[in-house]
Design a protein around this nucleic acid. Structure first.
Length: 473
RNA sequence: GGCCCCAUCGUCUAGCGGUUAGGACGGCAGCCUCUCACGCUGCAGACAGGAGUUCAAUUCUCCUUGGGGUCACCA
């Protein structure tokens, strides 16, 4: 237990970073950060058909957006590289030949077609039967390297989150280690690299529990000390199926960025899916690092709940720094054809008024458009019909006069003037404020009216009121 | 189907033999209030079922049921 902790996240670059992967990365990252260990990134790009450099970039971008920085890996290197499996072929070759010399690996010339035919015949219970286990010279036939299982026995390990798990060797089969060109398959590459990279604990999703058994047998055959394992509960979609790219669009981490989620909110939501710390719900990155460990990770799958994510996002937007929020909101305003610039103090001031009432940055932008447009805002038809009536016209005219006379610089003072006006007429403040709000913002819901008008500016507010007055018969 | 894992409110979870089974999201009702949101208060809402073990089971064991995962020259 005195060895320094080294963990890794090892995605295959076959698409964007998905939520399940992000949480696996997060749990590993938190474990490393909590214990002062090393978090490394390894790219498992051995599926030559599906791996792409674009996917590598997408995954790195996703991790960076979430703030999950790696101590060793692509782009920064480290003492245990290279960090792309396709650059480590010599190692796999040396290892598989060593295994073959010990009689623990053999060359198999069965073709995919042959195996598929047998599988089709026997059904889902089919296991490769070891046809080629005498390791004959393949001649010029294509072949792969297979692992020779022990005759019998049982594999067991104590998982850090699930507990004791075991399986009979008779339920396993001689699986493919690597192809003839030594490009490894998952279980082989994973074991070889985890060992040579000094990984002390493998943290991954529970879908990998079953691959742990052959991996353990490999460690044994190689004479290597296996790492610890921690298998995290799965994240399920609304349909209770494992969250997947195919079935669930929300599995895409960057989709949430596009939807206006803050990375700290997504991290907060995802860390609570399977891990808890008492009754704490809103948890900062620093607190996660302080509190996280595998003893608090549960073992039951969790269902993705966009509603709770939205709630957390609102909390984190509300807690956000105005300047940073302004920068992050920029793109959302621009998408709505409102050209604003991040260093515009008006944008920063708008954040103070807008945050806390929006569940996402995109909602925030929708709710704040009227701050940055000129002239009559786009009107909510129902609001207009209800509040911008001929009966309200005199009230609006009086309100306009108050604003023209007193200005907007002192919202509290102006509010008192409005209140007096309302009282004079035997009305509540709301009766005056609502028509003005609709006239100025186009809707019935906005930040506090007097602060809102102050930010819009006197000339613009008066212009909007005049335009409305002119529209009312 | 074989194997593996799991099982507390609709959802995320606390609970680590004795609790009025707690919190959060969501829902509902109310308060606050210039609107919305926030906030506050309250209400409804769970130990899958059956055997054991024990003075005592949500908690330990087994079975059933249910759910999920996995059975590739993908990871």
């Amino acid at each position: 237990m005195s060895a320094p902790i080294r963990v890794r996240f090892a995605p295959s670059p076959t698409g964007y970073l998905h939520i399940g992967g992000a949480r696996t990365a997060l749990f590993n990252w938190l474990y490393a950060r909590h214990h002062g260990g090393t978090f490394m990134l390894r790219i498992e790009d051995t599926d030559r058909e599906r791996s792409t450099p674009e996917s590598v970039r997408a995954i790195l971008d996703g991790l960076r957006w979430l703030g999950l920085d790696w101590d060793e890996g692509p782009e920064i290197g480290g003492a245990h590289g290279p960090y792309f499996q396709t650059e480590r072929i010599a190692l796999y070759r040396e290892t598989v030949e060593g295994l073959r010399a010990k009689g623990r690996a053999y060359r198999c010339t069965c073709t995919r077609e042959e195996i598929d035919a047998r599988r089709k015949l026997i059904g889902p219970a089919y296991r490769y039967e070891g046809t080629c286990k005498d390791d004959r010279d393949p001649g010029d036939k294509p072949f792969v390297y297979r692992f020779r299982l022990p005759e019998s026995g049982r594999v067991e390990f104590a998982d850090r989150v699930v507990g004791k798990i075991g399986k009979m060797v008779s339920d396993l089969y001689d699986e493919v280690l690597c192809r003839a060109d030594y490009v490894p398959l998952y279980n082989f590459g994973c074991v070889v690299d985890d060992h040579h990279m000094g990984i002390t604990l493998v943290g991954r999703g529970q879908e990998h529990i079953n691959s742990t058994f052959p991996q353990l047998l490999l460690y044994e055959a190689l004479g290597w000390q296996p790492p610890e394992f921690a298998h995290f509960p799965l994240i399920l979609g609304p349909d209770r199926e494992k969250l997947s790219k195919r079935l669930h669009p929300e599995a895409d981490v960057m989709l949430h960025k596009k939807n206006g989620m803050l990375p700290e909110a997504l991290l907060n939501y995802v860390v609570r899916l399977g891990w808890s710390h008492g009754n704490d719900e809103v948890i900062s990155r620093a607190q996660m690092i302080e509190w996280f460990d595998f003893d608090r990770v549960g073992s039951t799958s969790g269902v993705w709940d966009p509603t709770k994510l939205a709630w957390l996002n609102q909390k984190w937007i509300e807690a956000g720094d105005d300047k940073r929020l302004a920068e992050l909101s920029l793109t959302f305003f621009q998408d709505r054809n409102v050209p604003v610039s991040a260093n515009d103090p008006k944008v920063v001031r708008a954040m103070a008024l807008l945050k806390g009432r929006a569940k996402s940055l995109s909602e925030l932008a929708d709710q704040g458009l009227f701050f940055f447009t000129r002239g009559l805002p786009s009107m909510d038809a129902a609001a207009e019909a209800k509040f911008l009536t001929s009966a309200a016209k005199p009230l609006l005219a009086d309100a306009r006069k108050l604003i023209a006379d007193h200005g907007l610089a002192d919202p509290h003072a102006l509010e008192e003037k409005f209140r007096a006006l309302a009282t004079e007429r035997g009305l509540g403040l709301g009766k005056v404020a609502q028509p003005v709000r609709v006239a100025v913002t186009g809707t019935t819901a906005s930040p506090p009216l007097f602060d809102t008008m102050a930010l819009i500016g006197q000339d613009e507010v008066l212009a909007r009121l005049d335009a409305v007055l002119a529209r009312i018969a």
